[in-house]
Design a protein around this nucleic acid. Structure first.
Length: 403
RNA sequence: UCCGACGUAGCUCAAUGGUGGAGCAAGAAGCUGUUAACUUCGAGGUUGCUGGUUCGAGUCCAGCCGUCGGAG
């Protein structure tokens, strides 16, 4: 099959790893840097695809774990793939299920933070829903407790049935709470061998399903916040025939840019780099400056549904009492449907009343805010104003006395 | 007018005579490859009023006030 995927670099920011480019997929192009909203279960919660497109989303990311459990990846295969199933014609990504190895296992019912200084009490074995070994992971469904097994081959089969344009190798997402020795063992015994197995299974499936659109496979770099491990993991994956790379796992927020920089120095220039699960504005700036091309994250959607909305002056809880009689637009300078048509008082009311429209309007705004932020960063790389834009945005965003 | 029941947090209700609690509402915080329209936290009280019994009363007794129901 003809490989219908490539990455074109168009601009670089001198003195940094930052770059702009275009990812070409069978379902269209993605101008990078770009933020990719997450629709875990083949829907971005609270939005119809037209609303997601209107927000400026160039692509969407779904999750192999959730769609495997329900409705089943074979159902989506029968439907003609993710795009046809969910009525989304633009590019799609799927995550491998690797995140659930962590979130249902060591991370079950815990917050895996990026500060690295939280000593959580160890989880009792019976409380976990996932158990990892060197071949893969056995886990219990969070839906009904039924037992399943994922390994690289299973994840690749599922992701091929789902049919996203960009898919990820099955990896082990370690946390900052794991020891250095564990991080080494995780790379050598699981994430790296699994990357090789994912690639082999992917190539086999690509041949078997030659009538389907080409799917690009990204290898996933791990190594927590250790420079030697991040470089080693990057070099290992760089030597394999991946179409791009996911930069994953445990990253200390304090030096996230530095960590991304280590990986960018080891990875090939001509392949795209995707930051898994990052969306805070300061993190986005740091990652792009150090070579990241695309991002996905549930945070803008989730915090929005819970009433936290992005403003240029920082995030606010619209449920706060002070918004009860604030009849100004959420953000007069925002071009999203919500800000163009509704007041803070109305949004406050919808949340307090528990109305579904609250989620929709909040999601539209938050997605637009982050998508546009990354779009603006892309423009600033192209015209050379990146550092001015970064300084101005972050100074305003993190000193929230203006509201 | 008489009889009866009931008065506890903003609301609905708990509390063998032994340090008055919960849910919801209201207030606030958190959320970074979604088990999340979620989670967490604090605040909120002269137990209708006045007396009495008791070591000790939201609880028992009396009166008053109020609400509801029934009878006239």
């Amino acid at each position: 099959m003809k490989k219908d995927f490539h990455f074109t670099l168009t601009d670089r920011l001198p003195g940094t790893h930052a770059r702009a480019g275009v990812i070409h997929t069978p379902h269209g192009d993605i101008e990078t840097p770009a933020f990719i909203p997450v629709g875990t279960q083949a829907t971005l919660k609270a939005l119809v695809p037209e609303q997601l497109a209107a927000v400026g989303a160039q692509a969407m990311l779904a999750n192999a774990y959730h769609l495997y459990l329900r409705p089943g990846s074979e159902i989506i295969d029968q439907a003609g793939g993710l795009h046809a199933f969910m009525n989304w014609e633009k590019p799609t990504f799927t995550d491998s299920g690797g995140f659930q190895v962590m979130s249902l296992g060591v991370g079950f019912k815990k917050v895996i933070d990026m500060s690295g200084d939280v000593a959580e009490k160890p989880l009792a074995k019976k409380d976990k829903l996932a158990w990892i070994d060197d071949d893969g992971v056995t886990f219990k469904s969070h839906l009904n407790g039924s037992q399943h097994r994922f390994n690289p081959e299973v994840s690749m089969k599922i992701q091929h049935e789902l049919g996203a344009d960009i898919i990820f190798a099955f990896d082990e997402l370690t946390t900052l709470h794991h020891s250095y020795d564990y991080q080494v063992e995780s790379l050598d015994r699981r994430t790296h061998p699994w990357a090789v197995r994912s690639l082999e299974a992917h190539q086999q499936l690509t041949q078997e399903r030659a009538d389907k659109p080409y799917q690009a496979l990204y290898g996933v770099v791990q190594g927590a916040n250790y420079e030697d491990l991040r470089r080693k993991s990057s070099r290992f994956l760089a030597d394999l025939d991946f179409d791009g790379f996911g930069l994953g796992g445990a990253l200390t927020k304090e030096n996230i840019g530095e960590i991304v920089g280590w990986m960018s120095e080891e990875l090939p220039e001509d392949k795209p780099r995707h930051m898994l699960g990052i969306s805070e504005p300061d993190d986005i700036f740091d990652c792009i400056e150090n070579g990241a091309d695309t991002f996905d994250c549930v945070s803008p959607a989730r915090v929005g549904r819970n009433g936290a909305l992005y403003l240029p002056t920082g995030r606010v809880n619209i449920t706060n009492r002070r918004f009860r009689d604030d009849f100004t637009p959420l953000n007069a300078d925002c071009d999203c449907y919500t800000c163009q048509n509704y007041t803070r008082a109305y949004l406050h009311h919808l949340f307090k009343a528990g109305e579904m429209l609250a989620s929709t309007l909040a999601t539209i705004h938050n997605q637009r805010f982050i998508v546009k932020l990354v779009d603006d960063i892309r423009a600033s790389i192209k015209d050379g104003s990146f550092f001015d834009f970064k300084q101005e945005f972050l100074a305003t965003y993190y000193h929230k006395d203006a509201l």
